[in-house]
Nucleic acid binder design. Sequence first.
DNA 1: CTGAAAGCGCTAACAT
DNA 2: ATGTTAGCGCTTTCAG
Lengths: 339, 339
Amino acid sequence: MATMEGTRRRRATVNDVAIEAGVSRGTVSRVLNGQRYVSDDARAAIDAAIAKVGFVPNRAARSLVVQRSQAVGLIVHEPHSLFVEDPNIASILLGANSALSEADYQMACLIADSARDVDRLTHYLSGGLIDGVIVVSARVGDPITRAVRDLGLPAAFVGHPRDLGSAAYAAIDNRNAAREITTRLIGTGRRRVGMIAAALDRDSGADRLAGFVDALGGDFDPSLVQRIPLYSYSDGQAGMRALLERAPDIDGIFASSDAVAAGAMEVLQSSGRSIPGDVGVVGFDDSSWALRCDPPLSTVHQPATELGRAAAESVLRQLAGADPEPIVLECPVVWRASA
Amino acid sequence: MATMEGTRRRRATVNDVAIEAGVSRGTVSRVLNGQRYVSDDARAAIDAAIAKVGFVPNRAARSLVVQRSQAVGLIVHEPHSLFVEDPNIASILLGANSALSEADYQMACLIADSARDVDRLTHYLSGGLIDGVIVVSARVGDPITRAVRDLGLPAAFVGHPRDLGSAAYAAIDNRNAAREITTRLIGTGRRRVGMIAAALDRDSGADRLAGFVDALGGDFDPSLVQRIPLYSYSDGQAGMRALLERAPDIDGIFASSDAVAAGAMEVLQSSGRSIPGDVGVVGFDDSSWALRCDPPLSTVHQPATELGRAAAESVLRQLAGADPEPIVLECPVVWRASA
DNA sequence: CTGAAAGCGCTAACAT
DNA sequence: ATGTTAGCGCTTTCAG
């Protein structure tokens, strides 16, 4: 009755279809690829045969001859904890997937979580099963970045590490955005504004700090910036505690992510300070953290979905022969009640 | 000097290596696949030649002949918003990736976010580029689930939809866990305990409700369960508000996820109720939400990483010829201060 | 419009 | 131990 479980019978091939339809393999192939110059009769016979024998084209064989796979890889090279916590990655994936899907490309997300992964990945990428790549959260000196470049695969980065050379990327202007929101924070009348600066080994982290410095200009006081390793809630708490110890009179905080800001707010509030009364705080990302804060967090909106989409479209364009080019997306300040 | 950009020269093949090394293709292939019976001389010559011509094997060609790809797909079929919010997915990915990586398999995460995606995906899966699949968050009647079964691909599900038949899965016992934590909540002396029940169209959601009913036994009062669509913070708020209106005297809440619990706590607290004084609340997941709550949330620990790993190992075992079998993982109650 | 034939890059007998 | 030969399943000239 039902297909026997486990009896994975030989898959039908073009040949089977050709025989069933009484035509040649070439004609079947023409139908498969929607080419002209196939008679209606032949087409009908072939369609019927395909259905009858349950034919599904073998992609490996097709890739081998046409030298492309109609698939693009999206590489996430993120340290363990960050991948789990990063509020943007999922949106980037979804954005990229939808752009690729519209162009009938399959997106395959590949994770680089260990040295072994990186190794296998570079082999995988050069194996011909992937036509192009989107790289999320590459860092300076990243072996993946180097491998992608060496391979000469069409690629687009989300974010913009400095050693990218002329590669395509989709990014926001972190520095400018940080400058804007800090300026706005200062504009609320704060005198002693500090920053909790995470991830300075990444372009995003370094640029946000630079923007902060820009905004303060001559009033910049280095003792008011506290460095922390990660864009995380707990590092935000630790950073805030350290800062408070050094500068109890601080009255404004730019946290380099919403999670960091949430941690900072928690510490501020349990130290008895009111927000935004005693101290104003602003964040970065406009992630779900921002609305969950009390009061809701003023922050800069990061267009994660659009970044993913833009990177995917760039790869698609390169696949069609275009040159790689950078794309910079707007990220407006979203003002709420925390400052 | 440097490799000319854009001059994607023809990739070296086994043939080029063979010529360069002065041996036959067969011998090159043997070296590539680490087989015995290759002289040291030949091996050395071939290794040198590979390096010299910059040879990287073409996976499509290899897949075509050996009929496997050394890659497994991990399919995420999650509605848009949930994918972004779900605290478990990233951990599942990481767990599966690490198990597959150890076995030298490439994991490719595939997203099904639209009808078009589902279509393309089923073709992709049957294309021979994927040896097996892990399916995350399948739902009853899911077309992906059906396609996977029809294809006869080795597969393992994370979670356990009822229409799975004899397929392999890795899951927790949601019903039992829900019963346990509810019992514990009741044990703190609560008289009127309710539930905010999300995602009843999914096995996890329905099972958690069933466990809740089990725990209450004869004391179960249907008017004390509020249904909400999603495992989300905002639905948690809405659910809590609705419940409070119907039953202002409620003194215990089982929320079907940590995010839901966090939303409920927010509403409870801004209504002037203290936690755990006036009402005890417990959640489910042990995600980052739980520690972020104030007071920290009592919840059930969901072993997401291990679920991913177990599903991957199941696929690997099936690839080696084993029969599919279910795996149920422990999920201990983690008691904190919210109840 | 269609068939025949060649070949994508690799592996796997089968000889030797 | 190694060379030779036949394909894996598909597309793509090239004739006709």
